[in-house]
Amino acid sequence: MKKRRLFNDTILIALLILIPVAMLILSNTGENNPDGTVLITVDGEIFERLPLADNAEITVVTNAGNNYVIIRNGEVWVSDADCPNKTCVNHRAISKAGEQIVCLPHKMVLEIVDKDDKDIDSLSQ
């Protein structure tokens, strides 16, 4: 029984390490595309869509507060926000397609998508 248990545990943990690592490697082979678009949604509805290539500063206005988003040099990040936990502000800058910065209290999702990506699979009313 004990041998069986050790075997099961090891297999399970090995799977749980290998599969995510494989997923990470696969997703990182898509590199910085200057073609990308920054998609900002609030509560499921598209707030703004900006090209990643153009420097910009935008204030995301939500019912719960504001987030100040900066796009510069192909990266995007949240410079300031009036949400309680500031997780979005502390998050490092994102630049690759698929990466996200989320502000839960404001229900804001900041995501980088490919320009021709049909992103209507987010739940919107």
């Binding site: 749980l16 690592v21 997703s27 996200q100 229900k107 999702v109 995501e111 987010s122 739940l123």
Partner: peptide, 15 residues
């Protein structure tokens, strides 16, 4: 957040 595209965070969270 009404955004079901969570796949980005999943590998990191599992690890």
């Amino acid at each position: 957040v009404s955004d079901l595209r969570i796949s980005y965070y999943l590998p990191i969270l599992v690890l």
